Amino acid sequence: MQYSNYQSGPMYQPPVPNKRSAGMETAAFVLGIVSIVTCTCIYISVICGALAIMFALLSKGGATSMSNRARYALILGLIGLIATVIMYASAFAYAIHTYGSIENLLKEYCNLTGMDFNELYGDLFAQ
């Protein structure tokens, strides 16, 4: 009788546990939505967008691919960050276009607030 067709070792291998984190996916998804909704508030949007991207990438655990929910969270975080950067860059470009330079913009700000330009300039660029 030949036993060469039989393998040695255990025949049953336990299933590999899912290393993905559903909590991280949910957190990333919610933070991505918050990043888009608050894209007019630079601090909240940038922080939430960056955290959404990090949590989406960390949610895959040891797996080689991301789940669909994590992929959507990553996209939402990126959209929130890009929308914030575009919004603030266009507002800054419009202000520079309207007033001609940063110095003229600061002078107009001083006229609106009643501050002295030298005091404002000293506060901004003092070391």
Rank of each mutant, 00 (worst) to 15 (best):
residue 46 V to I: 13
residue 41 C to I: 09
residue 68 N to H: 02
residue 9 G to F: 13
residue 127 Q to E: 11
residue 99 Y to S: 09
residue 100 G to N: 10
residue 124 L to G: 07
residue 112 L to K: 11
residue 20 R to F: 07
residue 107 K to N: 05
residue 118 N to L: 08
residue 32 G to H: 04
residue 108 E to W: 05
residue 11 M to A: 12
residue 70 A to I: 05
residue 43 Y to W: 05
residue 67 S to Q: 05
residue 127 Q to A: 11
residue 88 Y to N: 10
residue 52 A to K: 00
residue 21 S to Y: 05
residue 16 V to C: 11
residue 5 N to F: 15
residue 32 G to W: 01
residue 48 C to W: 00
residue 111 N to K: 12
residue 53 I to P: 00
residue 96 I to W: 02
residue 3 Y to L: 15
residue 71 R to G: 01
residue 85 V to E: 06
residue 40 T to E: 12
residue 56 A to T: 06
residue 113 T to Q: 02
residue 101 S to V: 15
residue 78 L to E: 05
residue 23 G to D: 13
residue 123 D to H: 10
residue 74 L to I: 01
residue 112 L to Y: 09
residue 56 A to Q: 08
residue 93 A to C: 11
residue 19 K to N: 07
residue 37 V to N: 02
residue 113 T to D: 01
residue 82 I to F: 03
residue 43 Y to Q: 12
residue 10 P to V: 15
residue 23 G to L: 12
residue 31 L to T: 03
residue 58 L to W: 04
residue 30 V to Q: 02
residue 7 Q to I: 12
residue 2 Q to C: 05
residue 80 G to C: 03
residue 28 A to G: 13
residue 110 C to F: 04
residue 70 A to W: 02
residue 47 I to V: 12
residue 121 Y to K: 09
residue 52 A to C: 07
residue 42 I to A: 14
residue 94 Y to Q: 08
residue 102 I to K: 06
residue 8 S to K: 15
residue 75 I to R: 03
residue 97 H to R: 07
residue 102 I to S: 09
residue 46 V to N: 04
residue 101 S to E: 13
residue 80 G to P: 04
residue 6 Y to T: 13
residue 62 G to S: 15
residue 45 S to G: 09
residue 60 K to A: 07
residue 44 I to H: 06
residue 115 M to P: 00
residue 30 V to L: 05
residue 80 G to A: 04
residue 51 L to T: 00
residue 70 A to C: 07
residue 127 Q to C: 05
residue 8 S to V: 14
residue 5 N to P: 04
residue 76 L to V: 01
residue 79 I to Q: 02
residue 49 G to Q: 02
residue 13 Q to G: 08
residue 19 K to W: 06
residue 94 Y to C: 05
residue 38 T to C: 12
residue 57 L to P: 00
residue 10 P to F: 14
residue 82 I to T: 04
residue 102 I to W: 06
residue 66 M to Q: 10
residue 46 V to E: 02
residue 61 G to T: 11
residue 57 L to C: 08
residue 111 N to G: 04
residue 55 F to I: 01
residue 22 A to M: 07
residue 119 E to P: 01
